[in-house]
């Protein structure tokens, strides 16, 4: 049995992701110093920030895939959008859980109806709704069109989430690293910046590995469905 080229590439990507995940754990839990104010709880940020940035990327891919599907009506673009939506929902849910665990010792509450938190919960609801919609509509073509419209509308929540800390008085702090007045290395300890960067790379590699695997599932399921339909005709 020969290993196909995409499968080999996916394997290499998965292996690279694993290496960076282990490095991220080392830098985040061992090498980085505790925060002067928050102590060790701040280490949750090495997961929280990469998780939400990966979720944003995922929903951007949903947006692009949805636009391409509405334009060209190619099945592959719909599979891309649907796969990215599923993984984006997972990363958004994890972001909320991590934020909640960090919030309990830092803010004194597991949850608060802060603008950024609420808009992130709305983002999760929109894309959980997207997945429900896709599973409820049996006609693939209709489901893909409805999903593409919802995917495009849902993505518009992300600029609102990003700007919420500037537009409203929120408990959630504004960006600590990517600030217009200072370079990233002037804001935090270099060891913390390295831990964050390594974890971000790990999340990106893992994300593209999972997306590739999820797309393979989608393509196989589409072939099965086509074969069944052709058999019934």
């Amino acid at each position: 049995m020969t290993v196909t080229e995409p499968k080999r590439r996916r394997g290499i990507l998965g292996l690279l992701a694993l290496v960076f995940i282990l490095a991220g754990l080392y830098f985040g839990l061992v090498k980085a110093p505790p925060d002067a104010y928050q102590g060790d709880v701040q280490r949750i940020m090495y997961l929280h920030i990469p998780s939400i940035l990966t979720a944003y990327l995922s929903f951007f891919i949903v947006f692009v895939g949805s636009c391409l599907y509405l334009w060209k009506r190619e099945r592959r673009d719909d599979i891309l959008a649907r796969s990215a939506a599923e993984i984006g929902v997972l990363f958004t849910a994890l972001t909320i859980v991590e934020g909640s665990i960090w919030g309990r010792p830092t803010w004194g509450v597991w949850w608060t109806w802060d603008a950024r938190l609420t808009l992130t919960a709305v983002l999760l609801m929109i894309f959980a709704g997207y997945l429900m919609l896709r599973s409820l509509i049996e006609d693939e073509e209709r489901g893909a069109v409805a999903g593409a419209i919802l995917g495009i509308i849902g993505f518009l929540d992300i600029p609102l989430i990003h700007m919420s800390v500037y537009w409203w008085r929120t408990l959630h702090q504004p960006p600590s690293i990517l600030r217009p007045d200072k370079a990233p290395w002037e804001n935090i300890h270099p060891a913390m910046l390295i831990a964050l960067a390594v974890n971000f790379i790990a999340f990106l590699l893992l994300y593209f590995y999972l997306l590739s695997l999820r797309m393979r599932v989608g393509e196989s399921e589409a072939k099965v469905q086509r074969a069944i339909l052709e058999g019934a005709a």
């Binding site: 060790d40 998780s51 695997l213």
Partner: peptide, 26 residues
């Protein structure tokens, strides 16, 4: 719970959830 307790809880949930999702995809 001390700081490390919250850290281990967060890391445990995240990596367990991602591992379950990966196994499910396979």
């Amino acid at each position: 719970m001390d700081g490390w307790g919250y850290v281990l809880l967060a890391y445990g949930i995240v990596w367990t959830a991602l591992a379950i999702y990966w196994l499910n995809l396979r």
